[in-house]
Nucleic acid binder design. Structure first.
Length: 584
RNA sequence: GGGGGCGUAGCUCAAUUGGUUAGAGUACCGGACUGUCGAUCCGGUGGUUGCGGGUUCGAGUCCCGUCGCCCUCGCCA
């Protein structure tokens, strides 16, 4: 190696030893006779000092070196004089007195901010992604991600799971997310789809008797993006045979618990709480609630209907709901805070957020005066609201008001600073509905995916009331993000066929799309289930962010482009000809 | 596909109601300086105000279109 030590490892006890460091110039402070240079590598930053009596060549090179140049420095480690130690830096007790100073490579001025509190615009940071690896934030995220990967591997292996790789090129299925499609040269006019998820493949591994499978796998979905969604993303995929929901959850929960402890240094008590999907929607207005704070939502439709408030009465008369959040007195809300609330719900098609302050002698605000004194008492005790607090109301059709109330709750969490990125609140959400009603197509859709098993006691409802059937499905939410999701799968061919029928798939359609899978179910399928965990999201949330872009080495933009390479881009006419493709 | 925000020097930002030659910090270049760690001090180079059109005596500023990034609704079994 060109170096004896990294820039992160020298301490007071190294004083007196002769060392050689390699790294990038992070900062230089040139006093003329005396020159300080901070040299950085992945491991840290070390101060190099070039003194007036140093070798002339070394002095010249040190004077010439500029920010982000690559250098090699040899010298003696020295404890810094008292009063000039840098307490903010691990190597701050020492400095390297340079004997030799070589420029290994000069650098042009970098086009993005590589050091300091100032950040460049996000598109520049994406274009010059490789320079961002020099920043602590991204470097630490990638290191954290590597630790997560390592812990996952150790955990799965120690529990007897077998790592199996599956293909990325496979058959397109029209359900679910849009496929990324790959043309076949050997079969002109025919296409592969890039893997959306190894769901069916891992089930086949169970049918084949592999018993316990895991894999960290890249998945591709051609849908519009968000901060927590990339066109390609990484999943931990797990499946096991002969286990109940609790067995699968134990594998997942112990893993997440371990990651929280080893990677985030957080000791979260087990078992993690369980909340049914119905309760989560009702109390938090979300199927991935942030449980770092309370501010639970209550349904006050009945009480609001008895008020004199025309807005509420009209909503209730139209079959809508009124939801309320009691904000304790300690979270005082200014008029400005209250005026900002309508913007939170306008995206859901609601007009505003009514409010009242529980003051004495009178309740103030637009909603309060419409409640008679006895009704106020009813409302107040229903919400457990306290004197001096504020009650916020979200009213509208259930499909809009429920998620809107969840949005308001999250907004309040941000407003009151209750979403501490160092706090972790995992929660299991279970008992999802098996189906959602698809009004456009007049049929049921699978809420999770069509291979999810129903709760046994609900199986009779498949014929009478499919909307009431609950699924053996479970998600783990943490800090408002869905971290992982899974289910027990259907292993009975007859039941599988029935579910296909309910979601409007004819025998012919099933045959055309899934015959290879449905046939497999007939050859001795063990009861099985599993889960998939979003690796990008777990690494993000462990680091206190929700933008998975921040934990992916080379991410794409929200329009699925790669600003560094310029993908996607046109291809040569010759390539198209070879594939039998003509552009419209 | 819909809604919103942003786009000015290499980088981060400023520029009054539409009004002089578009400024500052930093980087870079030159000079001074022996204990700095955002070093300091002096001087300098650096601009198609994203792009195109329009209104106006005059546009960074107003209008229309377009491109890019970010947020969001739909979408994501």
């Amino acid at each position: 190696m060109l170096r004896t030590h990294t820039c992160g490892e020298l301490r007071a006890e190294h004083a007196g030893s002769t060392v050689t460091l390699c790294g990038w110039i992070q900062n230089r402070r040139d006093h003329g006779g005396l020159c300080f240079l901070d040299v950085r590598d992945r491991y840290g930053v070390t101060q190099v000092v070039v003194e007036p009596d140093a070798d002339a060549a070394a002095r010249g090179e040190a004077q010439r070196a500029r920010l982000e140049w690559v250098v090699r420095v040899s010298g003696t480690v020295r404890a810094r004089p008292a009063g000039s130690r840098n307490e903010d830096r691990a190597t701050g007790a020492v400095e390297v007195v340079a004997d030799a100073f070589d420029v290994l490579n000069a650098a042009e001025p970098v086009p993005v901010a590589v050091t300091g509190a100032e950040r460049s615009s996000e598109d520049l940071e994406l274009k010059y992604r490789y320079l961002m690896f020099r920043r602590a934030e991204l470097r630490d995220a990638l290191l954290r991600r590597a630790r997560v990967n390592h812990a996952v591997r150790e955990h799965m292996v120690s529990r007897g799971f077998c790592e199996v790789e599956t293909p990325s090129l496979l058959k397109s299925t029209p359900e679910g997310a849009r496929d990324f499609v790959v043309p076949s040269r050997v079969h002109p006019g025919q296409f592969y789809a890039l893997l959306q998820s190894p769901q069916l493949l891992k089930q086949l591994l169970m049918i084949g008797g592999m018993d316990r499978y895991w894999q960290i796998v890249r998945c591709f979905r051609d849908e519009d993006l968000r901060g927590d969604r990339q066109p390609e993303f990484t999943q931990l995929d797990v499946e096991m045979s002969f286990g109940a929901e609790s067995d699968v959850q134990d594998v997942a929960e112990s893993l997440v618990h371990r990651l929280l402890r080893e990677v985030a240094g957080a000791d979260v008590p087990r078992p993690f709480p369980h909340v049914s999907w119905a309760d989560a929607m009702s109390r938090y207005g979300s199927d991935k609630p942030d449980l770092r704070f309370g501010l639970e939502i209550a349904d006050v439709t009945e009480i609001a209907a008895r008020s004199a408030f025309a807005v509420f009465r009209d909503v209730v008369a139209a079959g809508g709901v009124v939801r309320a959040i009691a904000v304790p007195a300690k979270h005082a809300m200014t008029r400005k805070d209250l005026d900002a609330l309508p913007a939170v719900v306008v995206d859901r098609g609601l007009k505003g957020v009514a409010w009242t302050k529980i003051a004495s002698p009178d309740w103030t605000g637009p909603a309060g005066k419409h409640f008679a004194p006895e009704l106020r008492e009813t409302l107040r005790s229903a919400l457990g609201a306290e004197e001096g607090g504020t009650i916020l109301f979200v009213a509208g059709p259930k499909e809009q008001a429920v998620p809107a109330s969840g949005d308001v709750r999250l907004h309040l969490g941000n407003l009151f600073g209750l979403r501490d990125p160092k706090v972790f609140a995992p929660v299991w959400i279970d008992r999802f509905p098996l189906f959602d009603w698809n009004a456009d197509e007049n049929r049921w859709d699978s809420a999770h995916h069509p291979f999810t098993a129903p709760v046994e006691e609900d199986i009779p409802l498949l014929d009478s009331d499919p909307g009431k059937v609950r699924a053996k499905a479970y998600d783990l939410a943490m800090n408002g993000l869905e971290i992982l999701g899974g289910s027990i799968r259907i292993h009975d061919p007859a039941l599988q066929r029935k579910v296909f029928t309910l979601i409007g798939l004819s025998d012919e359609q099933v045959e055309a799309r899934f015959s290879w899978f449905v046939e497999a179910l007939r050859y001795g399928t063990p009861p099985h289930g599993g889960f998939a965990m979003g690796m990008d999201r777990i690494v993000a949330v462990l680091g206190g962010t929700s933008a998975i872009r921040d934990v992916i080495a080379f991410p794409k933009t929200t329009s699925a482009t790669d600003l560094m390479t310029g993908a996607p881009s046109p291809v040569e006419e010759r390539q198209l000809r070879e594939l039998g493709i003509r552009l419209a």
